[in-house]
Nucleic acid binder design. Structure first.
Lengths: 84, 84
DNA sequence: TCAATGTTTAGGCAAATGTCTAAATAAAAC
DNA sequence: GTTTTATTTAGACATTTGCCTAAACATTGA
């Protein structure tokens, strides 16, 4: 839960998640959309992976990142506490 | 949205929100539940108020904090993007 | 009016965060 | 086998964060 909220507490990381709604993408393709350096985006992706918001698979020299929606259920569950 | 995620990115602040599910409480009553100093809790309450997750009303020398659930809808809306 | 109670503000400090450049690793292409 | 391309790791640095104590502010009660 801590890693989850931490990962979501950054606009760049949230934008990466929104990007991945359109389907999986390589680290490079994701990085192109932002003005930050590749290492910076790589670090953001690492935090998203720690929170299990994304998964990654190596494909040749590329690393493909995919949205993992199952974690959102955990978050929705926490939020629904407050909706009654 | 930034202030919202920022406010949620701390276990003490999330615990305060859960405390307020049981009803409004004064700053002092909230602070009693934690091992932190009163100024520290006051600061956390300030961040929660900035995110509009709580409202506060002064009642005499007390300040009563109340959960504001409407902001959770905004968050739920953001999350539902990812649920399709 | 003065003291006690409840809360916030101010200021300081260590740790965490977000960024960068340079270097390392790994696969592909020539 | 050497170079290019894709990505991560390492290390540095400025900013932000979360905590504290001391002081200020505001209300109540003697």
């Amino acid at each position: 839960m801590n890693a989850l909220f931490k990962a979501l507490n950054d606009p760049t990381r949230r934008a990466i998640l929104e990007r991945l709604r359109n389907g999986p993408a390589t680290a490079g393709a994701i990085a192109e959309q932002f003005q930050f350096s590749a290492p910076t985006i790589s670090h953001h992706l690492d935090l998203l992976r720690q929170a299990e918001l994304v998964t990654s698979q190596k494909q040749g020299q590329f690393v493909v990142y995919t949205l993992n929606m199952t974690v959102f259920d955990e978050l929705l569950g926490w939020l629904y506490q407050f909706k009654s």
